[in-house]
């Protein structure tokens, strides 16, 4: 199956969680995934359950787990914190 390369950026507690699993250090990494993967597949790959991901952007636009990914996409994941 053909592969695509996407950039993943994660922040604060998602970054901390992934770091605990020893995957990435600075919140940014490139991942090779099968073509026709969706954002949700990437989230599953990172072992993040629903209560960890509150906001997704792809190429700086809000997105959803169902969004199909293309080569070169930049995916950002944010946990569901709010301001006060």
């Amino acid at each position: 199956m053909a592969k695509i390369l996407v950039t993943l950026k994660v922040h604060d507690i998602i970054k901390d969680k992934i770091n605990r699993n020893g995957v990435l250090a600075d919140g940014k990494m490139q991942i090779t995934i099968p073509e026709e993967s969706m954002v949700g597949d990437l989230i599953d790959l990172l072992d993040l359950t629903d209560d960890w991901v509150g906001l997704i952007t792809v190429n700086k636009r809000q997105s959803t787990p169902e969004k199909p990914l293309s080569d070169g996409d930049v995916v950002e994941l944010f946990s569901p914190l709010v301001g006060g």
Binding site: H11, D12, G54, L55, K60, F78, L81, G83, G84
Partner: peptide, 8 residues
Amino acid sequence: AMATRTNA
């Protein structure tokens, strides 16, 4: 932490 989210 909200600043990263609103900025996005």
